[in-house]
Design a protein around this nucleic acid. Structure first.
Length: 955
RNA sequence: GGGCCUGUAGCUCAGCUGGUUAGAGCACACGCUUGAUAAGCGUGGGGUCGGUAGUUCGAAUCUACCCAGGCCCA
């Protein structure tokens, strides 16, 4: 038998089936660098409307993890898609370089050497460390295919950026919202330093456990008696529980939960404190804590004399158990009923909650304790004592006063210094703040967020709640690696001074020498000659040692980035970060921008969720369920990670794991192979010379194009809304269902067996070319390497790289609803025919569908439709023959299956095709001429013509 | 404990303002093909929509509570 195979126009392409991304990706990325792709895109878009996605700076520490991948790939896809949509979309990556984690790491690395280093030298070590990780992460991000201005990233530690930070601070100073106030922080008495939360370790500790009585003042008791007559005539008190007796001297309030029920219980104990008073006392305890408290005290409480809500106690006044001053009743939501009495001793200078409550009620942040933990000398009873030594003193004084109801010890976890492992205390210290209300900052922030578009929409609600409830911004840190607050102190009276003259001069010096100058240069360089202390008129000043909160650094990035990139239009189009940044960067950036320009720095804010494992649990090294991007890249390639990012719903938590990645790899293969077969059928197609005008295309080709038009239009809309999942799902469905399973399958006969120049073949290639080129561009932002590689295997493309091309323009013009509706019906029939063919196949009557013939009997509108497409039907079913009859399909007694659609019905009968198999096109046709042996018959008439056409071409 | 969010087939996702037997792709099973071949085609099985209780003639779709999970606070 002759081998006809090489007389066919079989697909051929250099685009490999196996992606081999591990080696292809670095090569393609290297090519981008060689051709200066980023710069060429900038040139090409010069003058186009700008679209700026402003990069949130990752912290310059550690290697990148899967969360970075999600974040950076999303950004890259958006930037690339906006670029291909016609915008000038520059992308300037950034890094957050200052801050505690680096300081601690460097501290660790330096060990004892740090002792002999100046602050400036230590900062230089930190800078080297940060730069090392900037370089490392930059390489990793680029390996992911992220395109950007990697040669000129912004870094919060560069001189111009540091100057921008100080200038931003100056704007707040100018608006008179920067002030110095007291706030409790973790304080290590041993190291005499403030500790960040990360430097605190919780260890087991045994503490005193004391129940202390605060007597209610007469007026409040009288008011209470009015509401609850049963209490009338009794001295009333409230019982609190604490594990830090030494904070009692700093008590200013007693906190109650507004919604909790409190009982007033008859108690003899009160009488002790009122020696000689014959009246029985009463004590306030949360009802739900009565039994536990009674057990701890070793006594019984009867039923309550009266019951009241916590909110009824707001504003009640109590007497301090040791001093002659008031302690006021306040309300707080954090009061729990898990321990204690439900009434919480409150010392605003010694606790975070206490402080917040104190601020709300305008209480003094009282903490008469020095840096070494010694009470000020003028404090009664405990003056001069160290805080922990003061515990027994306080207990004794309370007992003497008759206010100590019970004393025990308790084992619990207590914060310790991670360095020296001594217990730490909460101690109010002087800090710099930006006031949220004095300058109306909070109000302006709340109104600014309304003008921002939030993706998802609930983001606005989330940030609103935070802004509405947050305290003033504490912007100072007692650290070395950061931007110094350029304030000074009067040498004479210790008054803190911070003026715009100071920030201006600091900004100028920092811009030239970097912020290390603050530690190395004479203070005189920063102090204007005419500066006088506003308190005492002094002219001698010393510099502040605090640095700025790093959130102020990164929050200034919208200003800092402009130093190297003045071409960027402020405000920016999009910020895109994880949902933790509502409290972090979105928040600080908004506040800084309101300070510098009185507007939000972003028009749109997009958030993504966190990456969790396959069962939805958070990732942690200890559980061992982490997924390392480096491993995935090595095994499967970065494009797989990118496709993963685009296929999941990034707005909520996103899952990843081996099984999910298997699915992604499958999806990638399908996309790649389908696009490959399109390219492979275009090997001899030159669109300029061979393209068939639209109105001369076969109907099925116009149908494929119409569906492509729908898909492309939908994809473009999805990109605009950042709905990458819709992009991939739409394209993927189209490629698998429309193209691979239907169009290409149906096209094979036409493409392979006809003469190469046959109009019917060129018609198919015209559609394939438009579809392949279009889909390649539409997927390019997501799979930039694969699509660029494919792009270069497509005929007739003008751009050097798909990334220099534009998205398809006006794809909706290809859509023809009537045409699509007709073919949707035909495809419905095709499914039904396939069902019948499958039965033949299962019965071993036929193998391939070309061995079968179909007989259709149709009625209604369907009959007309089929009649109009009579010549297309065999191709549609990929059978060798179809005979069509018009007539009642549902007649009784006949064989076959019924297919019913919206307008009409068709009876489907299938059987073996007659005739003999053409050895070239494999269709079963009636033997040409009546040869003695059909098996030796030559090729069919159609193939004969095709061969003649090819011969003519060669000649 | 509070703010915001999530829970539909093994996986990734559709299911608009409540209304026919809950859909798609992948995976899986079976078969076909060997002219997309470490490919391709066809057919099929599989969810009662996290749980409970309500509202309603009717709920995956509304309400309440509960369970599981995520981010941020405490």
């Amino acid at each position: 038998m002759a081998d006809w195979k090489h007389t066919l126009n079989l697909p051929r392409t250099g685009f490999p089936m196996r992606a081999n991304l591990q080696t292809t990706e670095p090569a393609v990325i290297a090519r981008w660098n060689e051709m200066g792709l980023y710069a060429r895109i900038r040139e090409r878009r010069a003058g186009a409307p700008q679209f700026v996605l402003h990069d949130g700076p990752p912290y310059a520490n550690g290697k990148i993890h899967i969360g970075h991948v999600l974040n950076k790939v999303l950004k890259d896809v958006i930037v690339r898609s906006r670029t291909m949509a016609g915008f000038d979309a520059p992308y300037v990556p950034g890094w957050d370089c200052h801050g505690l984690p680096i300081e601690l790491k460097v501290d660790q690395e330096l060990g004892g050497k740090k002792r002999h280093m100046s602050v400036a030298d230590f900062r230089r070590a930190c800078r080297r460390y940060a730069q090392k990780f900037v370089d490392r992460q930059s390489a990793d991000f680029q390996r992911l295919g992220v395109l950007g201005d990697w040669d000129r990233p912004y870094r919060t530690m560069t001189p111009d950026y540091q100057a921008a930070i100080v200038r931003a601070l100056g704007r707040f100073v100018e608006q008179r919202v920067v002030y110095k106030g007291k706030k409790p922080v973790h304080w290590c008495l041993h190291c005499r330093t403030a500790l960040a939360e990360a430097e605190v370790e919780y260890e087991d500790h045994t503490s005193p456990s004391i129940y202390v009585e605060f007597p209610m003042r007469e007026a409040s008791a009288a008011a209470l008696a009015e509401k609850a007559p049963a209490v009338a005539g009794r001295p009333v008190s409230v019982l609190i529980w604490t594990t830090t007796p030494w904070t009692i001297p700093s008590n200013l309030a007693v906190a109650f939960h507004p919604g909790v029920d409190y009982g007033v219980y008859a108690a003899d104990g009160v009488a002790e404190a009122h020696a000689g008073d014959e009246r029985g006392g009463a004590v306030i305890i949360a009802e739900k804590r009565r039994d536990a408290t009674a057990a701890a005290l070793g006594r019984d409480f009867g039923p309550p004399l009266a019951t009241l809500k916590g909110r009824d106690l707001e504003g009640a006044t109590f007497g301090h158990p040791l001093y002659d001053r008031d302690s006021v009743g306040v309300l707080a939501d954090y009061v729990t009923l898990e321990q204690g009495t439900g009434a919480v001793h409150t010392a605003p200078g010694h606790g975070a909650d206490d402080y917040a409550t104190g601020v709300r009620y305008g209480l003094d942040v009282h903490a008469p304790i020095g840096p070494s933990g010694r009470f000020d000398d003028d404090v009664e009873i405990v003056g001069g004592q160290k805080v922990f030594d003061a515990n027994p003193t306080v207990e004794a004084a309370l007992a003497d006063a008759g206010r100590l109801w019970h004393r025990d010890t308790v084992d619990h976890t207590y914060p310790h210094c991670w360095r020296c492992h001594h217990p730490v205390i909460f101690l109010a210290t002087w800090q710099w703040f930006i006031g949220l209300d004095t300058g109306g900052l909070r109000g302006r922030a709340l109104s600014a967020i309304r003008g921002v578009e939030w993706f998802p929409e609930w983001g606005e609600e989330r940030i609103r709640n935070m802004l509405a409830n947050r305290p003033d911004w504490c912007i100072s840190r007692q650290r070395s690696w950061g931007v110094p607050i350029p304030a000074v102190y009067c040498a004479a009276c210790r008054e803190a001074v911070l003026t715009t003259a100071l920030t201006d001069r600091a900004a100028a010096v920092f811009a030239e020498h970097g912020a290390d100058a603050w530690y190395e240069r004479d203070v005189g360089e920063f102090v204007p000659p005419d500066l006088r202390c506003p308190a005492c008129g002094g002219a001698e000043f010393e510099r502040e040692r605090d640095i700025l909160d790093v959130w102020f650094d990164s929050g200034s990035s919208h200003e800092g980035v402009l130093g190297d990139h003045p071409e960027l239009d402020w405000p920016y189009n999009v910020y895109l970060e994880g949902s933790d940044q509502y409290r972090g960067w979105f928040h600080s950036s908004l506040l800084v921008a309101l300070g510098t320009r009185n507007a939000a720095p972003y028009r749109q804010v997009i958030t993504h969720g966190f990456v969790v494992d396959e069962s939805g649990r958070k990732m942690s090294k200890s559980i061992g369920n982490t997924v390392e991007p480096q491993t995935i890249i090595r095994q499967s390639g970065a494009e797989i990670l990118r496709l993963w990012v685009a296929m999941v719903d990034y707005r909520e938590e996103v899952r990843i794991g081996p099984h999910i990645l298997d699915r992604i790899v499958e999806a990638y293969r399908k996309i790649r192979n389908t696009l490959r077969i399109l390219a492979a059928n275009l090997y001899d197609f030159d669109p300029a010379a061979h393209a068939v005008p639209r109105d001369e295309l076969l109907e099925v080709d116009r149908y494929a194009l119409a569906r492509y038009g729908e898909v492309a239009a939908r994809v473009l809309r999805a990109y605009e809304r950042y709905e990458l999942q819709t992009v991939v799902r739409t394209v993927n469905n189209y490629l698998t269902v429309d193209i691979s399973a239907f169009y290409v399958d149906v096209l094979k006969d036409r493409l392979y067996t006809l003469g190469p120049r046959a109009h019917r073949r060129r018609s198919a290639q015209t559609a394939l070319h438009a579809i392949a080129g279009g889909i390649t561009r539409l997927l390019a932002p997501i799979l930039p390497v694969t699509c660029d590689e494919l792009w270069r295997h497509l005929p007739g493309v003008d751009a050097d790289s798909v990334h220099l091309a534009d998205f398809p323009a006006e794809p909706e013009s290809l859509v023809d609803p009537d045409l699509i509706a007709r073919w949707t019906r035909l495809l419905g029939l095709r499914d039904a025919v396939n069902g019948e063919l499958e039965k033949l196949r299962q019965d071993k009557v036929v193998g391939t569908s070309l061995e079968a013939a179909v007989t259709l009997t149709a009625d209604g509108g369907l009959a007309g439709l089929l009649e109009a497409h009579r010549d297309d039907l065999a191709t549609l079913f990929i059978t060798s023959a179809v005979s069509l009859r018009t007539g009642p399909a549902a007649g009784g007694g006949e064989s076959g299956a019924l297919h019913r659609d919206a307008d009409g019905c068709a009876r489907i009968e299938v059987g073996r095709a007659d005739g003999a198999k053409c050895p070239r096109c494999w269709r079963w046709v009636m033997p040409r001429g009546a040869g003695p042996d059909p098996a030796e018959a030559a090729v069919c008439d159609r193939c004969t013509n095709a061969l003649a056409d090819m011969a003519a071409t060669v000649a």
